[in-house]
């Protein structure tokens, strides 16, 4: 049995519910906006966040590609001339999807798509096989020559310490069990490779263009 006063109460309640719903939507979108601002700030201050390094163009010129240009390199993806590739090399002698790459504990794994011609440090990589690239390795695809330049602080072989020493030989893969206090250090190699860890001397790395004395490549890309 519904009491008489319920109906006016329920009708009045509608304005209350509408107000609460509007507050929920307003706060949610405000949150999203604040989040977008934070992302923008992070991108502005650390534009290479999420990348493991760059591919520097040593040779090969086209309308959209110039020698000396840096191609940002994510931890994994496809290398090729198609616009959708993760590392875009716009050159007529490079196939639309030329090679796959993936960051691992031992370095950057590179594998040609089908039987696309691909050479690493002058050695041809046959189809269905892969090469492991370290800092400074040269990739030849068609008329384009690229040099791999990894960011400092990557926890893998081939990456450089802040003093410019290569971390060789490859570090042994750590066991998967985590310690309670340091969960991030024992993650999968690929994700571990994406994080720029703090340098050994506990000071953040100053990103400077490479020189003969300092072989660490740390120049920030322009976006």
């Amino acid at each position: 049995m519904r009491p008489d006063w319920y109906e006016p109460l329920a009708v009045a309640g509608q304005y209350w519910f509408a107000l609460l719903a509007v507050i929920v939507v307003w706060r949610a979108f405000r949150w999203l906006r604040a989040d977008a601002r934070l992302r923008k700030k992070v991108l502005k201050e650390l534009p290479d966040a999420g990348y493991i390094g760059t591919l520097n163009v040593l040779a090969g010129e086209s309308r959209d590609l110039e020698p000396g240009e840096d191609i940002p390199l994510p931890p994994e993806g496809v290398l090729g001339s198609a616009a959708g590739c993760d590392a875009w090399v716009p050159h007529p002698t490079v196939s639309a999807r030329h090679a796959f790459f993936q960051w691992g504990p031992e370095g950057l794994r590179l594998r040609p798509c089908r039987d696309e011609p691909l050479a690493v440090d002058g050695r041809l990589i046959p189809a269905n096989s892969e090469a492991i690239l370290r800092h400074g390795a040269q990739i030849e695809m068609g008329a384009v020559v690229l040099q791999l330049r990894l960011f400092a602080g990557l926890d893998a072989a081939g990456a450089m310490t802040p003093d410019g020493e290569a971390l060789l030989p490859a570090k042994k893969r750590k066991p998967r069990r985590r310690k309670a206090k340091a969960p991030r250090q024992k993650q999968a190699p690929v994700s571990a490779g994406t994080k720029r860890q703090k340098p050994v001397n506990d000071k953040p790395q100053k990103r400077v263009p490479p020189t003969d004395d300092n072989p660490i490549y740390g120049k920030q890309r322009d976006r």
Binding site: R39, V42, G50, T194, R196, P204
Partner: peptide
């Protein structure tokens, strides 16, 4: 949650870089 951890690391790194410079 994975992305959040990455972002926090980026922010920490950005702040550390700012302080160093």
């Amino acid at each position: 949650s994975r992305v959040k951890e990455d972002t926090e690391q980026d922010v920490a790194m950005a702040q550390a870089t700012e302080e160093a410079l």
